[in-house]
């Protein structure tokens, strides 16, 4: 698959402060690419430069073969953007908002009606098309914004924290729309998020910290590289269990009280054999797979948190 976004040696400085430092990455056409990082890592700066709202200091940024700095209008036609903050026209109705977008993007007049119907249907908002935007809930507004960003049939959809501030149910819905879009329309989706479980769904994840990209890989590869599965075990005879663990070369931590043992698992078979020996001793057993959150912690040393903005 060919790359639709190509970033090479991109640097952005604010005076003396380097927000993004010599970053390179690429995004494959038709994939979902998640951009993670603690607040202030340079994510928003990167996304703002990619969507032509901010000038780079140096480097090359290409979207769909067009240069972000010199072919702005071409790039703008090729992308749809949903910003972190809301950008709807509150005083107008949903349809009026969508109509306006078609005007700005030069959508042929005779297609406007059909396209509006199509995108509203996609986000299940057809019943709301004549309502004023100010009457919509936060989740609905976000859906209108996604629908709007699709009106001009972009090749790449940028979503800056599309689900922040939404309740879990709406979040799930939103993800349904996003993945459906990617599958049905083969749109490339570039998003930032604070939720690690959301990043797990993506094809590719890049983690940014202090203006640099620390890792850039598939979620599965990242977990393989940076995390271990962990087992939390409580046994009746912890002393014996510990002795066995040492003998069998398991690395482990004792937590809280002696009954609570966290075991790093390299080989699940070996661990099952061990548990087999203690099958009458085990009071409680929980096995946790490594998560992207562990990867994130490992790489940035920071817990990811949801905050207003960076």
């Amino acid at each position: 698959m060919k790359s639709i976004i190509e970033v090479r040696n991109y640097t952005k400085k604010y005076g003396d402060f380097t927000a993004v430092d010599d970053v390179s990455f690429s995004v494959k056409e038709g994939s979902i690419f998640a951009f993670l990082g603690p607040n202030g890592a340079g994510k928003s700066t990167t996304i703002n430069t990619l969507v032509t709202m901010m000038e780079k200091t140096s480097g090359t940024l290409i979207i769909d073969g067009k240069d972000v700095s010199t072919e702005k209008d071409e790039v703008r036609k090729a992308i749809g953007v949903v910003f972190q903050t809301q950008t709807l026209d509150e005083k107008m109705t949903v349809t009026e908002n969508l109509n306006m977008h078609c005007v700005f993007y030069g959508v042929p007049k005779n297609e406007v009606k059909d396209r509006i119907h199509f995108v509203l249907d996609l986000v299940d908002l057809l019943d709301w098309k004549d309502k004023s935007v100010s009457n919509l809930s936060g989740g609905m507004k976000r859906r209108v914004e996604i629908a709007r960003a699709l009106l001009h049939y972009p090749k790449v959809l940028f979503l800056d924290e599309p689900t922040s501030g939404l309740d879990p149910q709406t979040r799930n819905k939103m993800w349904e729309y996003i993945t459906r879009l990617q599958k049905e329309k083969n749109i490339t989706i570039f998003l930032t998020t604070h939720y690690m479980d959301e990043a797990e769904i993506c094809d590719h994840v890049a983690i940014m910290d202090n203006g640099k990209i620390m890792v850039d890989d598939t979620p599965a590869n990242l977990k393989r590289r940076y995390t271990k599965d962990k087992a939390t075990v409580q046994v009746k005879n912890p002393a014996l269990f510990e002795e066995t663990l040492i003998k069998e070369n398991f690395s482990f931590k004792k937590e809280k009280n002696i009954f609570h043992v966290v075991v790093d698992i390299d080989d699940i078979q070996q661990f099952l054999d061990l548990i087999q020996l203690f099958k009458n001793e085990v009071k409680d057993l929980e096995i946790k797979k490594g998560t992207l959150n562990d990867v994130f912690l490992e790489i940035t040393g920071k817990e990811i948190r949801e905050e207003a903005s960076e």
Partner: peptide, 16 residues
């Protein structure tokens, strides 16, 4: 108002 409400951003990111 349009700038503060964010609507100006929608205009400016478009090719118009």
């Amino acid at each position: 108002d349009d700038t503060v409400s964010g609507f100006m951003k929608e205009i400016l990111v478009s090719p118009t």
